[in-house]
Design a protein around this nucleic acid. Structure first.
Lengths: 225, 225
DNA sequence: ATGTGTGAACTGATTCACAGCC
DNA sequence: GGCTGTGAATCAGTTCACACAT
């Protein structure tokens, strides 16, 4: 089981119980896998058949050795003297990330940011399906007119369990974030993309990925003199 | 000068030429400073006067030793046997992050995500002022009714230079992100919060902080079996 | 010749553990 | 007694450099 080391924006203690064979893979490497996948997709579109570690690394903004090492965690995919087969590599990463088939996701919190994300096409484009949204005042959110069914927050457990959803996007005020996270977890969610400005406390087998927009901006402001 | 090591989501090569005296501070430590500040704000509201490293660390989701070391990079703020003065510490972090006074920010790209972020109150609440937004079709964005002036993308240089803006939020399609980043940089911007799904290539003295929403979700999907 | 795969060396960051101060 | 500040020890992650395959 498991992956070691922390990912900056997520709870340092959040580990995953991954399918047994993978051991000792830095979370950062997994993170980079997604980036490689993006770059590979572009190459596929361009009809390129193979790519060298240096070319792909450059596109992804990392060093060639790093790319090779990252891929090597999962097996041997390249041909010495030639490079990596673009199509095959892309598909293997998708497989690894559990992205071969559509993943259902729920969104909790239909405020400004929440309904913004509902309208945002980026998730759908990358193959995630937001199957439901929840809010304390579902009517208000519905009024903003989005193609995702909005339910009362009370139906949260019921619907998540019914659909077997494992991923949630949480964008509620900090004050209620923890209690909603608890409810999500006990309904069976094991991955939370958290936009609330709080450090969530969750069981070991749940992974939280924090995206704190204001904090990102604040962080930048340190560097601009 | 300067800060070493990388911050996960930003360009690994992006370093800052910081005011000389600070040397050898991990970027991650600076990142955590923002988190500590959040927690301190809550304590201020509660009227608490002092806080121990273990209490604050717990709230921030880190180990006490880490918190102490992080703060020690910048000076000695605590009292042995007592803890840290909440108010003073908060203000010193603000000062350090360059957040004592309001920072003007521009937003580029008024698509789904862009106009969502314009409506999002989080930035304003944390003391950033979005002074202008730019889009190729400013009228369309204006129509969505937001309290921020929207200009044609052509006026970008002009207005950024006039206002001396140093921070930008970039949320345009990947295909045009690099060229807009170039224009921002030459107009004087030195910190970019990048929501576009591309690795931006910028000069050494510009800091890019990448927030790739689809990628965050994808990353989670690895962990949910 | 070219370019992967990988142990070994290195660099950076976290944690320990304790000395020193209130 | 409690809690900070910090050198030393540990741990994780990156990069090097080269053996090996095509």
């Amino acid at each position: 089981m498991a992956i070691r080391s922390e990912l900056d924006r997520s709870n340092p203690e959040a580990f995953a119980s991954a399918p047994v064979e993978r051991i000792d893979i830095p979370k950062k490497a997994i993170y980079r896998l997604s980036i490689y996948h993006r770059c590979l997709q572009r190459l596929v579109e361009n009809g390129q058949e193979t790519v060298s570690s240096s070319a792909l690394a450059k596109a992804a903004g990392v060093k060639p050795a790093q790319l090779r090492k990252d891929l090597a965690y999962f097996g041997q995919f390249g041909t010495r003297g030639l490079g990596y087969p673009v199509e095959t590599l892309a598909s293997m990463i998708r497989d690894l990330l559990g992205r071969e088939r559509l993943q259902p996701v729920v969104l909790v919190g239909g405020g400004n940011l929440g309904s913004a994300l509902l309208r945002y096409q980026g998730f759908q484009k990358e193959g995630f399906e937001v199957v439901a949204a929840f809010d304390a005042e579902p009517e208000a959110v519905k009024a903003r007119g989005i193609g995702v069914p909005v339910f009362s927050e009370k139906e949260l457990e019921e619907r998540i369990e019914a659909d077997g959803v494992r991923l949630a996007i949480l964008c509620v005020p900090g004050s209620i974030a923890q209690s909603l996270a608890n409810r999500l977890v006990s309904a069976g969610v094991s991955g939370i993309l958290n936009f609330s400005p709080v450090v969530l406390d969750v069981p070991e087998d749940v992974v939280v990925n924090n995206v704190d927009l204001a904090l990102e901006l604040e962080h930048l402001s340190f560097f601009v003199r």
